[in-house]
Amino acid sequence: MSLNTQVGTWLDIGPVDQISPGNARTLPVRGGEEIAIFHTQDNQFYALVNKCPHKQGPLSQGIVHGSVVACPLHNWNISLKTGKALGNDEGCVPTIPLKVEAGRIFLLREAVIPVPTEAKAA
């Protein structure tokens, strides 16, 4: 994986066939939040922080139906497109911009990697 430190760059996460349709896999981030990447049955890819807004359940382990994932802990339904809780529940989990190019998955680097504390202070 290339770790380009330039702003506005995309991280190559690898080939699309690493995730079978209807499933999700995880991407831990050193110093940041673990990300869940979903491959829906209608062949779309989405990336979200792997934490339900309710009780931080790992969304990657939930049942995916349409573009929605049901959290494995308390069955909250979270939109994969917006990260928002659906139905009567309220809450939102950050989404990560994702693109698929030439059979590979890319995530927007700025959304994946936390701003280092030194940079924040400066």
Binding site: M1, L3, T5, L11, I13, G14, Q18, I19, S20, N23, R25, T26, L27, P28, V29, R30, G31, G32, I37, V112, I113, P114, P116, A119
Partner: peptide
């Protein structure tokens, strides 16, 4: 096996 393994891990250089 893919149900158990992470896809990869991101290790930003500035954090390391």
């Amino acid at each position: 096996a893919e149900l158990h393994q992470h896809l990869a891990e991101v290790r930003p250089m500035e954090i390391i």
